[in-house]
């Protein structure tokens, strides 16, 4: 059934902390590993040891540079996987009903045996969360490790998505957004968790925590003793000083007349 549920009992999803993520890609690898060895078709690679390797990934880490107006540039590592949107456009476009959003926990899944591989759901997703597997020719996407989180064969601490379990920086958090007291709801409230591309109207469940503000007021916070430090002259001395003056005096230099 590809019409979306009007509401879901729980809203399971991730909080991704852009302040904490160090861009190590461990979540990418653990996701690829778990989802190749477990639920559904494996995530294949093409030409893995050749000149042009490609492959299916459910989670990819981008890196962005932010250049504030009057502060040093910042580097932000940006993991991106399915956001399990409340108004998931990928689900409603599916002609077969292979894509669906679960009423009980809001996870968006693909029933691979019903997928005809038309690719329309990947077209509809603004986030690039869905990838067609080049080997199996079916659509692959993040399952929120549905085969881990309810899996009673696993020790309790492992019953969370592989990416969350593996993150060495603690930048990924898993929980229920429908519960205002859950860890993810609390984090979102405290840190101003945000939606990606809110203008698309997808109402993503996953939230991103923006990087914390960095020290930017360098001028005001200069040590009070700094003015008493010996001034550092920047003018070159000795041979370099002579060379600087000599070159300046030559035609073409700053004092050397017309060019």
């Amino acid at each position: 059934m590809t019409t979306l549920p009007t509401s879901t009992d729980r809203k399971l999803g991730l909080v991704i902390d852009l302040d904490t993520c160090v861009g190590c890609h461990a979540c990418v690898i653990s996701c690829k590993g778990w989802n190749t060895e477990n639920y559904g078709a494996p995530l294949s690679d093409q030409d893995p040891y050749g000149a042009n390797p490609t492959g299916t990934f459910l989670n990819r880490v981008h890196s962005y540079e932010i250049q504030p107006e009057a502060a040093p540039a910042q580097l932000i590592h940006f993991p991106k996987s399915c956001l399990h949107c409340e108004d998931a456009p990928c689900v409603t476009v599916c002609p077969t009903g292979a894509s669906y959003k679960r009423v009980e926990d809001g996870i968006v899944l693909v029933n691979e045996s019903d997928c005809i591989g038309c690719g329309l759901c990947a077209w509809a997703c603004p986030y690039g969360a869905r990838e067609m597997d080049a080997e199996e020719k079916v659509m692959k996407k993040c399952t929120l490790c549905v085969d881990r989180i309810y899996n009673e064969n696993l020790p309790e601490e492992d019953r969370e998505p592989a990416c969350v379990r593996t993150c060495p920086a603690g930048a990924r958090h898993f929980g229920d957004f429908a519960d205002p007291d859950s860890n993810v709801s609390q984090l979102t409230a405290q840190r101003g968790g945000m939606d990606l591309m809110p203008e698309m109207g997808t109402k993503p469940v996953n939230k991103y925590l923006p990087p914390r503000p960095k020290d930017q007021s360098l001028k005001e916070e200069v040590d009070i003793l700094a003015p008493f430090l010996e001034p550092i002259t920047e003018a070159p001395k000795g041979f370099l000083g002579w060379l600087d003056k000599a070159l300046d005096a030559m035609p073409g230099g700053p004092k050397g007349g017309s060019n």
Binding site: L18, V28, N52, P53, T54, G55, T56, F57, R60, V61, H62, S63, Y64, E65, I66, Q67, P68, E69, A71, A73, Q74, L75, I76, F78, K80, A122, P126, G128, E131, M132, A134, M194, D195, L196, M197, P198, E199, M200, Y208, P210, P211
Partner: peptide
């Protein structure tokens, strides 16, 4: 109105530039 700024949600902090893609090669997307 969709830009890299709204895509990353980081637009209010400054100019956002794609610094490094997730993989060196190409992909399905």
């Amino acid at each position: 109105g969709t830009t890299l700024a709204t895509a990353t949600g980081l637009g209010a902090r400054g100019e956002v530039r794609a610094f490094e893609p997730p993989h060196t090669g190409t992909n399905y997307l």
